[in-house]
Amino acid sequence: MKSEILYSGAFPMVRIELLAGESVKAESGAMVASSPTIDVDSKMEGGFLGALSRKVLSGEKFFFQTLRATRGPGEVLLAPTVPGDILIFELDGMNEYLVQKDGFLAGAEEIKIESKIQSLSRGLLGGEGFFILKITGKGPLALNSFGAIHTVTLQPDQEYIVDNSHLVAWTATTSYNIEKAAAGWIASLTSGEGFVCRFRGPGMVYIQSRNPRGFGSWVRQFLPTTE
């Protein structure tokens, strides 16, 4: 399997070349185009209950699609719904990635995707909701973001603070706490930051340069109101 990002920037696409028999797992609805040799197969990841829990719990799609080169080699083009960057990297089989629920775009068939519940405080204040995806296994993984993706690398015990609505993914070796952005409650709320996540290394944190919720409320002011 070979992959490359086309049109890097706001509106990228991933081109994945599959050898005969190879397959790739993708977010449902992500396929833009494919060679005629590719078959699309919809799959409930983790069985019916797993899929149901992922749909109900994390709001992720009930089905993932599997794109398989059953009738010879070919290519598929995949793209996320929102404008923003795509990041492709290899899962090493040891690192576990936690991904906010809209962040998964595609990955090797062998990778495993589960819904995870966050603790009460993280769920309420973390900005990604109570449910996130835990992605493990070995093989390439493509994440997508709203805006550009920025990678933060943390050495052991190194700390970094991220506004919670800018999180895309992080490795499980990092630990994080939710805290107020400023020392006082009033300053935290009036600064527009509210709550932030304090990450502690070692590990990687992937952040997005735009905040979907902030963009949503910016757009809302231009929408005509109905009676």
């Binding site: 090493d92 089989g93 040891m94 690192n95 690398t153 943390l154 050495q155 052991p156 490795t171 070796t173 290394g201 070692p202 590990g203 990687m204």
Partner: peptide, 17 residues
């Protein structure tokens, strides 16, 4: 076979299997 992740300042931040 890899069975742990190793971190140090001289290795990548994602750790070395």
């Amino acid at each position: 076979p890899h069975n742990a992740l190793y971190f140090s300042r001289t290795h990548p931040a994602s750790g070395c299997p």
